[in-house]
């Protein structure tokens, strides 16, 4: 009886030390990567700052990291020339979220309908291709004419951008469902609705979720471009105002805020994705 126990002990202590070793190695690798990432940031920003300080590049056209940073602080503390910063921020964010949600829902519905129905896809296929080939930015003036300078014209533009990304992925996802799985479910007694719930939608979801990253980006593009062309609020409006006043620092500062928004949104979509396709991410243990 004592033999197997001692054997167990010697077996279990070795993997524990190995595990520890591997963990410290992984930690070191992460620290190194983080260090390099920060290093790149410092080099680029430092070079920019130095070049601007010594007037090797014209600070009027290129601004400098310090000025941009101070501008953002100033906006936070004192508000912009066009009112407090957060109102612009909220407006852009709201437009983006609205056009994202509406575009995704419409895209999924249309993708599912056309993916399931041969007739619908034959009828509408060419028209959708045609609309998608159109550079959507040219629609912005029309939407502003129709819907005014407010939020709805930006949302409409964002929807036209996000819709197609999600639509094509949903369509493809529905088309690519494994025929055997569909047959299996039908044989097990699934009706049309059950087939959609248990087989087609879960299968298409991987495709749809992979499109959400890029479609969120497009929603943001829609909001900003719309504000750029005609608006009274929003980060895009802020950029166009700064540009009109030859304020490059303001343009860059608004750009930094925009990219931070985009990063946060991307992270949130990533979380959503993980949540919905958990069955894919579970590791074999």
């Amino acid at each position: 009886m004592s033999n197997p126990i001692s054997l167990n002990n010697s077996l279990s202590s070795e993997p524990v030390s190995r595990l520890k070793e591997m963990r410290t190695k992984a930690l070191k690798r992460r620290l190194r990567n983080l260090g390099l990432q920060i290093g790149v940031f410092i080099v680029i920003m430092g070079a920019w700052q130095l070049l601007a300080n010594y007037k090797l590049i014209d600070p009027f056209f290129f601004s400098s990291p310090k000025a941009i940073f101070l501008q953002i602080i100033d906006w936070f503390q004192n508000g912009t020339s066009q009112g407090p910063l957060y109102t612009h921020f909220i407006v852009t964010f709201e437009e983006t979220i609205l056009s994202f949600v509406i575009g995704v829902i419409l895209g999924i519905i249309a993708g599912y309908a056309l993916g399931m129905s041969e007739v619908l896809s034959v009828i509408f296929g060419p028209y959708i291709q045609m609309l998608n080939a159109l550079p959507r930015v040219v629609l912005a003036p029309i939407f502003i004419l129709w819907l005014g300078l407010g939020m709805s014209s930006k949302v409409a533009l964002g929807v036209t951008l996000t819709f197609f990304v999600v639509f094509f992925n949903a369509f493809q996802g529905v088309r690519e469902v494994d025929r055997n799985l569909v047959n299996n479910a039908r044989l097990l007694g699934a009706n049309k609705r059950q087939l959609a719930v248990h087989v087609i939608i879960p299968s298409a979801l991987t495709w749809i979720l992979s499109s959400l990253h890029s479609s969120f980006g497009f929603a943001l593009v829609g909001a900003v471009v719309g504000e750029f062309i005609g608006a009274t609020k929003g980060l895009g409006f802020l950029i166009s105002q700064a540009q009109g006043a030859f304020d490059t620092t303001g343009v860059f500062a608004a750009m930094v805020l925009l990219s931070i928004t985009a990063l946060i949104a991307d992270w949130a979509v990533g979380r959503l994705e993980k949540r919905f396709i958990a069955w894919r991410n579970v590791r074999q243990d």
Partner: peptide
């Protein structure tokens, strides 16, 4: 009838 296919029967998104 029920059918066991050559490829997969199990739905990958279900336990």
């Amino acid at each position: 009838a029920a059918c066991v296919f050559q490829t997969e029967n199990a739905f990958p998104w279900k336990t």
